[in-house]
Write a protein that binds this DNA or RNA. Structure first.
Length: 814
DNA sequence: CGTGCCAGAGTTTTT
DNA sequence: CTCTGGCACG
């Protein structure tokens, strides 16, 4: 029997639930993951349920991974997991095992088995937002619409909205024409249609499609739906309050036969309404699933009393809530600290300083987080942290896989895996420079479209005898074989095997002969395109038999990508090369975890990966991220800056029906991330988009129960003098107004910390993070990072640059 | 074809 | 303010 001893009564009730619909209303920090993992383990161990009969879906990889890990621990025991965690996890959660997956990953697995039913072939690509954007732009352009009126972002969100409503392009079009709803709606409907067709031609799905197509697959194929209904006897859904219509349908269809649906969520934490999440899904669960049992988890194990009271007092302001109230037996703890400061710089300085103070008192930096409403706010914190020597890590900047060089290599791999992928091709056909620019690609795209081929197929066909129709997505090889065999134009005989290289020798000379008629390129560009196509078709054929890392290495070498970077040789390119090496390690690591790793698996994995997944938990650094990305996380110390009307709640939410309620929930989510200490900050003046404005305090501050607040000792209204006292007067270099070393820690832990950061006397140029420097050309700047003879410098006017310390004309400024 | 300049837009974004 | 994308110029 599985031990449920450390669960509380409510938790145990939920974990013991067997058949029938169950709604677990799980307040923040109430241990819902424990409940779900125990329920799964109990079904398997005590009830003898086959793990393959269980499906648990989450929203994030992180949540899925955590759940998998904890379930495995319960099933196999902690010891076995220590010994062979990876192996056991793989054994448990493989294709035919226990599915604990994100919505998208679950849909992907299903679609993988039935891609053909929807007219896709199996190597279909998954497009990320940057790919989507490229497609949207092409569609707008193709229709001759004004790209200003129809920005990619606008078009995509409109399309996404239609998809989330489960509408097909035809339906959208019919609606737009049925009654007169304006040309805009009609244009969007047409764009939707063209966008969908282009994706399909490219054998690609975007994120929405994964869900939409899974639901469509079920809807159109009773046998498929039945198969999965019979497979999944028990279905669990995490964060149910964030499900959109499609996700709701997906779950509902799967659960329709047996009705064993267990959903876990908290209506107070619904913060993705703007993305289509429908809070009614959770509010109406009991209506939807008759005789549903409801269990409320209201005991909070995370936050201390004052923090909880604070959060409760804010969320109370919302209408239409499921009735519940969090409580804790952790004790009252510290009051919530509220400070008003002069402006955002003071705000960031206050935070940096407070963090240093807490660190001096024995807190780890990794235990602290700054949760902002907008990404733009993070910049000020970055600067302050650098200046104050606070190690930090930031989320929500450029996603790792969005870095140009990584995305380029991924596109190369994607094209090898799926030769129909024009978006990937267009991204890289001139990267590195091959002399094929906008005009060339436009012509190629047009020619390919006309013949119903992908661009690569067109190019590859051209190198052959001109048989345009010979190639298909999987057998791209047919095209290459064509070069070697049928084609008689030249010495193509040596184009055998993988060596696209050999192919290009043949292709190069073919351009004048067969090419011109079909490929709208001439001279150098035509040669380059043929060469490119031959190489890529070679990879397309070979990639099935290669390890991903091998493919990657070959691509780096044969496409000349690294070479082009090396030739430029600027620090920026150096950094890109470093990133490419780092990416290689990531591939190797993936292969270590899964020796069978196929190219398509890897591409899918990266496509479905977010940067929260890469958050390096080991590093001892404070975290800066948006409130949205903090959901599901917890930190002993949380700072919430920017408690101002117009920023939080945002200007755009004010006045729109229900939008402020969601902001309020977001505020609640933020506050309930804090375990021991919560700081609320408000700047009196804030600069937004270069405009300095006086602020009003956030309504969330006005609303909350003031008795939980510590508003600072020595000021009535709470102004910046509240923290500009005593221990801040020291200072390192005289230039810095607020230093660290002059201060003595005052905390209980407070042995004076050795000043580790003391700098060596500058002889030549030895600089460290936080130093001001002057560059002969770039002017004054701040060192962000210095290591291995390189320094990354944020210049005041020139932006960020990486410089070699022994070469750059740099001098240190005091 | 590639660079540089200017205009315009700028919540949040688990996948 | 600061990034992005489109366009004009060399």
């Amino acid at each position: 029997m599985i031990n449920l001893g450390h669960l509380n009564e409510k938790q145990r009730e939920a974990a013991l639930h067997g058949e029938g619909p169950l709604l677990i209303l799980a307040g923040a920090g109430s241990g819902k993951t424990s409940v779900m993992t125990h329920r799964i383990a109990r079904l398997v161990l005590d009830e003898g349920v086959d793990p393959r009969n269980i499906l648990a879906v989450t929203f994030t990889n992180k949540a899925a991974g955590e759940m998998r890990e904890r379930v495995a621990r319960l099933i196999y025991g902690a010891e076995a997991m220590e010994e062979n965690g990876d192996g056991l996890l793989r054994a448990m959660s493989g294709y035919g095992g226990l599915w604990i997956l994100t919505f998208h990953a679950a849909c992907l697995r299903i679609l993988h088995s039935y891609a053909d039913r929807l007219g896709y072939t199996n190597g279909f690509a998954v497009y990320d937002p940057s790919d989507q954007k490229a497609v949207a732009k092409r569609c707008v352009k193709a229709l001759g619409l004004d790209p200003k009126q129809y920005s990619a972002a606008y078009v995509l969100s409109a399309i996404s909205g239609l998809k989330e409503d489960g509408k097909s392009p035809a339906e959208a079009l019919a609606e737009a024409e049925g009654q007169y709803v304006g040309p805009r709606r009609r244009d969007i409907a047409i764009l939707y249609k063209n966008y969908s067709e282009m994706l399909k031609r490219n054998n690609a799905m975007d994120f929405d499609d994964l869900l939409l197509n899974a639901v469509r697959l079920f809807g159109q194929n009773a046998d498929v739906l039945e198969r999965y209904q019979n497979r999944f006897h028990y279905i669990m859904v995490d964060e149910y309050q964030d499900t959109n219509r499609l996700q709701y349908l997906f779950v509902k269809m799967l659960a329709a036969k047996r009705g064993n649906l267990c959903v876990v969520g908290d209506d107070d934490q619904s913060i993705y309404g703007w993305r289509g999440a429908d809070i009614r899904n959770i509010l109406d669960f009991e209506k939807d699933f008759k005789a549903a049992r409801v269990v409320k988890l209201e005991q909070n194990y995370r936050s201390c009393g004052f923090i909880l009271d604070c959060a409760n007092s804010v969320i109370r302001g919302n209408p239409d809530r499921k009735d519940k109230a969090l409580w804790t037996d952790r004790g009252a703890g510290d009051k919530v600290i509220y400070r008003m400061v002069a402006d955002e710089k003071e705000e960031a300085r206050f935070v940096a300083d407070e963090m240093r103070r807490l660190a001096d008192g024995g807190r780890r930096l990794r235990d602290m987080a700054v949760l902002t409403r907008t990404n733009a706010q993070s910049r000020t914190f970055e600067e302050a942290f650098i200046a104050h020597g606070v190690e930090y890590r930031m989320l929500g900047q450029v996603r790792y896989y969005d870095r140009k060089e990584i995305k380029d290599m991924l596109s190369y791999m994607a094209l090898a895996a799926n030769p129909k992928d024009d978006v990937a091709l267009l991204r890289i056909i001139n990267e590195p420079r091959r002399g094929i620019g906008g005009k060339g690609t436009d012509a190629l795209a047009a020619a390919a479209a006309q013949r119903g081929l992908s661009i690569l197929e067109l190019l590859a066909g051209e190198t052959g005898a001109g048989g345009a129709d010979g190639t298909d997505s999987t057998g791209g090889m047919a095209g290459l074989a064509g070069i070697a065999g049928a084609d008689g134009t030249d010495s193509a005989g040596d184009a055998a095997g993988l060596s696209g290289m050999a192919g290009l020798a043949g292709a190069a000379s073919a351009d004048s002969a067969a090419g011109a008629a079909q490929v709208p390129l001439t001279g150098k560009a035509a040669r380059a395109a043929s060469e490119f196509a031959a190489v890529m078709m070679g990879f397309a054929e070979a990639c099935g038999d290669m390890k991903v890392s091998e493919l990657y290495d070959e691509l780096l070498a044969k496409t000349g990508y690294v070479k082009a970077l090396e030739e430029k040789g600027t620090p920026e390119e150096e950094a890109r090369i470093e990133n490419l090496l780092e990416f290689r390690s990531a591939i190797i690591q993936n292969e270590a975890e899964d020796p069978e790793l196929a190219l398509s698996d890897f591409l899918e994995k990266t496509a479905l990966m977010s940067d929260v997944d890469n958050l390096d938990k080991g590093a001892d650094a404070v975290t800066v991220m948006t409130l949205h990305s903090a959901k599901g996380l917890e930190f002993p110390v949380v700072f919430m800056p920017g408690m101002e009307e117009g920023l939080f709640p945002t200007q755009r939410s004010i006045g729109e029906d229900g939008r402020v309620d969601e902001e309020r929930r977001l505020c609640y989510v933020g506050m309930t991330r804090a375990m021991d200490r919560l700081y609320l900050l408000r700047a009196k003046v804030r600069t937004l988009y270069g405009r300095r404005d006086y602020t009003l305090e956030s309504r969330f501050l006005s609303e909350l129960d003031k008795s939980v607040l510590d508003e600072g000792a020595d000021k009535p209204g709470g102004d910046l003098t509240g923290y500009l006292h005593g221990d801040l007067s020291g200072g390192w270099g005289g230039a810095r107004p607020f230093g660290e070393s002059g201060r003595r820690p005052i905390d209980a832990f407070g042995a004076a910390r050795a000043d580790v950061k003391q700098r060596e006397e500058a002889k030549a140029i030895s600089v460290g993070a936080g130093d001001r420097v002057r560059h002969r050309k770039f002017g004054a700047g701040l060192v962000i990072e210095a290591a291995n003879g390189f320094a990354t410098v944020m210049f005041d006017t020139e932006g960020r640059k990486k410089l070699a310390l022994d070469l750059a004309p740099l001098s240190k400024e005091e």
